Amino acid sequence: MENIEEYIESGILELYVLGQLSPEEKLQVEEMAAKHTAVRAEITEIEQAMEFYAAAHAVEPAALLEQKINGTLVTNLADDRIFTNGHTRTEEIFEDDELVTDNVVQMNAKSSGFYKYAFAACLALLLVSIYALVNLYNKLQESNTQLTAMQLDKQKIANQVILKDNELDIYRDPSYKVFKLKGTTKSPEALLTLAWSADKQRVVLDMKSMKLPEHDKQHQYQLWAIVGGKPVDLGVFDKPGEADTAGVKEMKSVANAEMFAVTVEPMGGSVNPTLTEMVVAGATK
């Protein structure tokens, strides 16, 4: 099966419209046009483009030049010169009893034909160049789009590497202690891993391994630290979504804590924990 796009882009259709093909090549183009609608449409489009270009660049002759040409035509028609075999016979014209010789040189028709085909060839070359430039522009746009996507992917990967490195830093740092908060009687299967550094007063949650019961959109999880027998709010959080790449979440700071616990509270958190909604808890000692 012929590759129609490559055939159209080869430039042979422009040469066909200009009449610059051999009889065999012309027959081949006509066969392709009969078989493929796209080829016929391209030929029509090329013909129209050439007509539009010729019409747009047509030059109106000056009035004086037009009168001069018309006068020359009338004179030549009135003249009794005889042209035979491409040559001019010299006529003798008598004016005021003197013999005047009028030599007429025939214009070479091949010159005008050459310029006609040269102009058509230049026009065809211009159309092919424009088409090539448009294709090049489209390919450059596609390359820019691919490059932008690659840069975004690269940035995304770099961010993920930074996040992973930060996560590893927590486990490398000996000041952090890791606690596993286990489920309560309300949710015995629940589990949450927490890292806490009393020296740095930082609390970090492991978001990837958490197993907490589901809740509706009007509620959130809230982390509490028990300090001196009193609950201290350490912030609210939700389960990570599919698009979340962060493996850990840093909560509010705390220097001393005897216990950590998580409750389900209304959106935005509560001032005091709802004990009946406690899902995980764990002592630090």
Rank of each mutant, 00 (worst) to 15 (best):
E5K: 13
E6V: 13
Y7F: 15
E9M: 13
E14C: 01
Y16V: 06
V17A: 13
V17P: 04
L18S: 15
S22F: 05
E24F: 00
E25T: 03
E31C: 04
A33M: 11
A38E: 09
T44H: 04
E45A: 08
E45V: 00
I46E: 06
Q48H: 09
Q48G: 02
Q48N: 07
A49L: 06
A49Y: 00
A49S: 03
M50T: 00
Y53I: 06
A55P: 01
A55Q: 08
A58L: 12
A62F: 08
L65Q: 14
E66Q: 14
G71R: 11
N76E: 11
L77E: 11
I82P: 13
I82R: 14
T84I: 12
T84H: 06
T88I: 08
T90C: 05
E95I: 09
E98Q: 11
L99K: 11
V100G: 07
D102V: 07
N103M: 04
Q106R: 08
N108W: 06
S112D: 05
L123T: 06
L123F: 02
L123G: 05
A124Y: 00
L126W: 01
S129L: 08
S129V: 04
Y131L: 03
Y137N: 07
N138C: 02
K139P: 02
Q141M: 09
Q141T: 07
T145E: 07
T145A: 12
L147W: 07
L147Q: 12
T148H: 13
A149M: 11
A149R: 13
M150G: 08
M150V: 07
K154E: 13
K154Q: 13
Q155S: 12
I162V: 12
L163N: 10
D165A: 11
D165P: 02
L168S: 09
D169P: 01
Y171C: 01
R172Q: 07
S175Y: 13
K177F: 09
L181R: 03
L181E: 01
K182Q: 09
S187P: 03
P188L: 00
P188C: 05
E189S: 10
A190Q: 02
L191G: 04
L191F: 10
L194Y: 02
A195M: 09
A198D: 05
V203M: 00
L205P: 08
D206F: 14
K208Q: 15
M210D: 01
M210H: 03
P213Y: 15
P213A: 01
Q222I: 14
L223P: 01
I226S: 14
G228D: 11
G229S: 10
G229P: 03
K230Y: 15
P231Y: 03
V232C: 06
D233V: 06
L234A: 04
G235L: 03
V236P: 04
F237R: 12
F237C: 05
D238Y: 11
D238K: 05
G241Q: 06
G241S: 11
E242I: 09
G247N: 07
G247Q: 06
V248Q: 06
V254P: 01
E258D: 14
M259E: 12
F260R: 03
E265V: 09
M267T: 09
S270Y: 02
N272V: 08
P273M: 00
P273S: 01
T274D: 09
E277Y: 08
E277Q: 08
M278D: 05
V280T: 03
G282A: 04
G282E: 04
A283D: 05
T284I: 04
